[in-house]
Amino acid sequence: MAVLTSRVGTLSFRNPFLLASGVWGESGESLLGAWRAGAGGAVTKSIGAEPRPGYPNPTIEEYGRWGLLNAMGLPNPGIRQYPREIAIAREAGVPLLGSIFGQDAREFSELAVAMARTGVLGLELNLSCPHAEGLGSEIGQDPALVGEITHAVKQAVKLPVWVKITPNTADPAEIALAAEAAGADAITAINTVRGLAIDPELGRPVLAHGTGGLSGPAIKPVGLACVWKIAEKVRIPIVGVGGIVSARDALEYLLAGASAVQIGTAVAFEGIGLFGRLPGELGLLLDRLGYPSVSDTVGRAHRPTVPAPPSPGRPNH
């Protein structure tokens, strides 16, 4: 079977399917559960300086199989309490990325130092939450601020730093370029797409916060286009996220230029067990299409070649 090992810069994962930030990452046992289910690694909940309850409910609107709108509001136990959760997963050998969010470069670098001490393999900077005032994408829409924060974090820690960027801006690739110029080791794209749900019977927005972020299969084409445009501009690796529910979806992201992918909303559809299913399915798909490894697929759609012949004995769909 095709080699599933996924490399993102200096980091290596047993398969390219990582748990996305915000999903299952509040407790250490949940991070461990994703790994035991078969994930290649996991990104923690985004952690800030202080415990934060997030927004009141309703925090979720469901759209059947095509997605979810959420405004959780960055709930997290804070950087002082969270290391005990990380320890549970880290001691069991889970490859972890620590996600952090803050108000400015100084807060980000302080959090980065504290997060680095927990033993995570790398950091992911959440510069893209679409529903937190003064945080997230309000910072992440400004290339200069993204550069300043990325630079400050890179000065503060030795770990690889992934910058998670927002699609809610005119040119996500410009943001990615700013992160790369400031020393980012990888780009994670995309965070959720800003959206709104209104209940016509009640005549009001559904989410307590008003607007939220759309995730799930509905945003896959948006995520693919962002990864595609970013891959044209930057040389650092890209981690693709947005609407992946199948091995085929993941391969689309790899072909567009991603070196690994992250999965979030599909966990709500199928449960954590999907991490056990996807690597094998991707292996079969790569075999059928003639790719010897995950790394052979990365960015291949940018330089299409003659399609590989089908493997003997398998139908060529």
């Binding site: 999903v23 299952w24 949940s30 979720i60 959780m72």
Partner: peptide
């Protein structure tokens, strides 16, 4: 509880999620 869909982790109880 927040999402009730087995996703947000608010209702994590050991290795379980109370909602699912």
């Amino acid at each position: 509880m927040k999402c009730a869909l087995g996703m947000c982790d608010a209702c994590a109880l050991g290795p379980y999620h109370v909602c699912t």
